[in-house]
Structure formats: C-alpha cells, structure tokens
Amino acid sequence: MHFEFKVQGGDFVRAGNASSQVKKILKQLNVDSSVIKRIVVALYEGEVNIAAHAFNGVIYVDIDTERIIIKLDDNGPGIPDINLAMQPGYSTASPIVREMGFGAGMGLPNIKDNSDDFKITSEVGKGTCLEILVNLKVNQEGV
C-alpha cells in the first residue's frame, strides 16, 4: 500500500493529520498497538519538524505485510550539522514553535529510538529527508 501526504510549513493546526491517518490504517491492519505507537510517534515528530522548521514537504508511506517505510522529504533550510541536530536537547526552534509546545530538542533522537532503521540526509538551502523503517511484527525489532 502506498500513501502520500502534504505538509505545510508553519501550519500547527493541521500538523499531525498524516500521522493520524497512518494510525487509523495501521489499526485496520491489526498491527500490534505497541508497534503502532512507535511508528506514529516517529512519524508525528517528523511531521511536526516539517511544520516547525521547513517550508513544505511530502510524506511517502509504504506498507507491506512485514514493514512500514516512511519517507519525509521537505523543502527548507536544511540542517548544517546533523550530528549536532541529533543530540538530545539541541534545538533552534523559534519562539512561535515553542509556544506551540515544541522545541525540546527531543524529536530527532526520539525518531531514531523508535525506528528499526533510520536515515537522515540534508542539504543546506534545499531541504531535509528522513527515512524511517519499522518492522510490523513484534519481536523483530532492531538488530
């Protein structure tokens, strides 16, 4: 199954819609609730990052019987130092983003923590791309 969702930078009303849709789909597929939680928490953090830090983006979701692969591709300022951005507590979130309840600097490390495989690439002045893979069957986490 393949799904695509658009995300608009700065839109904190709709941020989370894609994650919500994906959660409904995974529930219908009877995926274990602890696995669903890991997937949607990671996806939601990624979705909010596009709203908080980028101009716009597209989320591509592919689901088969074994795994879900989510790609979040945005147009935005990009991340100059990915290692630094991955550190828990590091955040450049604006005051507006903080008012919305974000900016703890916990999103990216938490996405990695919830994924079985995680890749991040970014080009300054162009955008950022995250790839999240989660195995759908329990007891199959990580390597």
């Binding site: 904190f12 959660k23 928490v41 939601y44």
Partner: peptide
C-alpha cells in the same frame, strides 16, 4: 492547544 491532544492520540 490541538497539539497536546495530537500528542495524546499518538502516545495512546
């Protein structure tokens, strides 16, 4: 705000 409820939704 709505994101507090979204967070609750995602975290069960």
């Amino acid at each position: 705000n709505i994101q507090a409820v979204r967070t609750a939704e995602m975290s069960d």
